[in-house]
Design a protein around this nucleic acid. Sequence first.
DNA 1: TTTATATTGTGAATAATATCACATAATAAA
DNA 2: TTTATTATGTGATATTATTCACAATATAAA
Lengths: 205, 205
Amino acid sequence: MNRRSIIRLSKYKNTLQRLKAMGFVKVFSDNLADALGIRSTQVRKDFSQFKITGNKRGGYIIDELLEKILRILGKTSIQRVVLVGIGNIGRALLHYKGFENEGIEIDSAFDINPDKQTGRDDISVYPMEQLVGYIQKEKIEVAVIAVPDIAAQRVFDLLLQAGIKGVLNFAPIRLRGPEQIPVTNVNLVLEIENLFCFVNAKKEE
Amino acid sequence: MNRRSIIRLSKYKNTLQRLKAMGFVKVFSDNLADALGIRSTQVRKDFSQFKITGNKRGGYIIDELLEKILRILGKTSIQRVVLVGIGNIGRALLHYKGFENEGIEIDSAFDINPDKQTGRDDISVYPMEQLVGYIQKEKIEVAVIAVPDIAAQRVFDLLLQAGIKGVLNFAPIRLRGPEQIPVTNVNLVLEIENLFCFVNAKKEE
DNA sequence: TTTATATTGTGAATAATATCACATAATAAA
DNA sequence: TTTATTATGTGATATTATTCACAATATAAA
């Protein structure tokens, strides 16, 4: 199972949810390919990998397809995460509407200063000392690291100690830890630099 | 020139800047490989692609290497971007310290409601009507789209009309436009879903 | 000096990913 | 019914990215 097809699976899901909301019943690999800007063979190859089958000449029934994809993505129950660090990014995440709609819930937040406000009365802020215990007690599997880079590795070590299973990291450093714990990095500076580099390269062509 | 090596170039830059700050003078491809969690051949292949050469048995002089990389990344002058949309994410970006340190400047912000405050007196907010004119007058090349998904394509069209050269898009939709304008998507829901999927896959192994 | 050693730079091999080509089957038309 | 058409599903192929293998060479040691 490769990473890229999982990412696409999540995109198929979005497209399918929109189509469903619009009242569509069937969809062809060609439609999904258009929506994602890829080839239809890629769509079918992806489905093939995940043992998703459609109907020869009939395409796919959106409801069935969506259900299968949601199961593969583990979207059968609420996906709870903890947020570590209530700075600019942490606060933005706390107010971001996109998560709730997709069944992702920020269960609670942690900060060295637990007096920081989340601005949401349904999400409590706990001091860092309670991070490990909370994760273990509540069986949280995924954490978001939104602390300054200097603190990120320390937080990651705590999370590992607590038995976390996956991490989304906003700090611009590579977190070191066991191979089998997936860490996804979001680095905004890097993305913008990357963009400028492409823009400059285009100019010289 | 492939996208992945440019991303790595940006990471090499960070590592080199840290090493320089620590007083180091030389670096080996092996050191950089360790820092990024890749192989040293990859590092050398990347450099080779960008015509960066070192010294047989002597590694690379950090100052020289850094200078070359900064030039390739177009970091010889301030990289100005405009921000479109002052919601949660937009506001987080406005307050994010990471940009300034890396020579990236949010030049100005745009929103349908120009009364929105940036919280920074050095960054003005303009109404959406002025977006196209401003970009043209100020020769802005890169824009950040941080508006709701429903408005994203419309904003992108305006940016294209203004002659934008690259876009960082936070809206969870695929923006349609000419092939040659690079669009980088940051989709937080997708990243978290992806993570959960990996976590679940690991459990079944 | 000569020899040993460490590191770069790169063509070739391998691995990962995407696309093509086409057999297969379901539906619609004749 | 039979034939034509339209999608799927997948083995084969092409493309892209990474790693290997090793020649070239600079430095240090003998």
